[in-house]
Design a protein around this nucleic acid. Sequence first.
DNA 1: TAAAACACGTGAGAC
DNA 2: TGTCTCACGTGTTTT
Lengths: 204, 204
Amino acid sequence: MEYADCAPDGSCVSEGAGSGKGRMRMRGQEREYKSKNLQAERRRRQKLSDRLLALRALVPIITNMNKATIIEDAITYIKELQKNVKDLSDQLLEMEASSEEEAKQRSETIDAAEEMNKCGIEEDVEVTNIDGNKFWLKIVIQKKRSSFTKLVEAMNFLGFEFTDTSVTTSKGAILITACVEGIYGETFAAAETRELLQEIIKGI
Amino acid sequence: MEYADCAPDGSCVSEGAGSGKGRMRMRGQEREYKSKNLQAERRRRQKLSDRLLALRALVPIITNMNKATIIEDAITYIKELQKNVKDLSDQLLEMEASSEEEAKQRSETIDAAEEMNKCGIEEDVEVTNIDGNKFWLKIVIQKKRSSFTKLVEAMNFLGFEFTDTSVTTSKGAILITACVEGIYGETFAAAETRELLQEIIKGI
DNA sequence: TAAAACACGTGAGAC
DNA sequence: TGTCTCACGTGTTTT
């Protein structure tokens, strides 16, 4: 790797390939003139070599250590990255389009909440024991997507069955009146059932 | 750019910088030996130059045409691309996590459909005219998230108001019985209202 | 003019 | 062995 005819500081013994004016100068002047170009060229080469090394460090797949193949691998890597970026942004765009509805639902929910407040409707949960484990419910909650379904599911899961149910939506609120019956024979207090319901509603 | 002392085919007039054995050979042999290496070196240089050109073509922002700066720009571009890929995939991951619920809902819908079919429940829409623009509805549809809310909204939009409504979910199906009344004074036939309803349900 | 960038030919080492 | 790759010093061109 080391140039045999040159000392580390750049002073060369070799005559060089000069065939032009440089050769015609006096010996001392010639050496100084050449030396300046020499050092600059060395700096340039080293800089380029360093950049190439940095590039090689950045590319994960390296088939060969050659200069040309390093650049080639970098090229394929850049193409791969560009493709990745394109695919990902396409996918993301698709995702965002499909989640637009979700955002719409969220804004609807906010609108509903505002309308409720504006009309002075307040959320309310009332539970009255009718007979044994049979309760009459009155629920006023903010309108959300699928809130009624979720409520029914949760109550079913807890062992309650809806019998006579009435649902109305108005002014951003859902008004539910229903009779529910505990089907597992357990008996609940009205207050207990009310807390259960409020917990469920909080989760909706 | 062109080397003054060399013809395009590579035969050089210059004596070269040789200070080693190569110089000691006979004149004819020396030229042939050097020539071979010369052509190979030319191919190598051209290949490297071409790769560098291709790299330059791939990088959008080029501050300078220098070899070193071309590689430097490529390095910064690769870093930028890597960051882009990372950010995008993070965002996508987040998106997917938030859309998990949606997929869950979809699978629930499928489960509901299977359960309905297994239990022999069939979708049904019945409309009976009670008095003027007042109808009694009986609807059996597959359980989906927010289907009831959507139904009520659509009917409200078309000018119907729900009065006495009963909703029950069972075996993957929603059973709705209700009285609706056209509030804009228009009169609908029962069959017409039924078609309207089926259109709405199809859209849910 | 000086400095920077480039292409060139060449010797030496690696496989 | 020959072929490939590299670093080197140099002359020329460009800024």
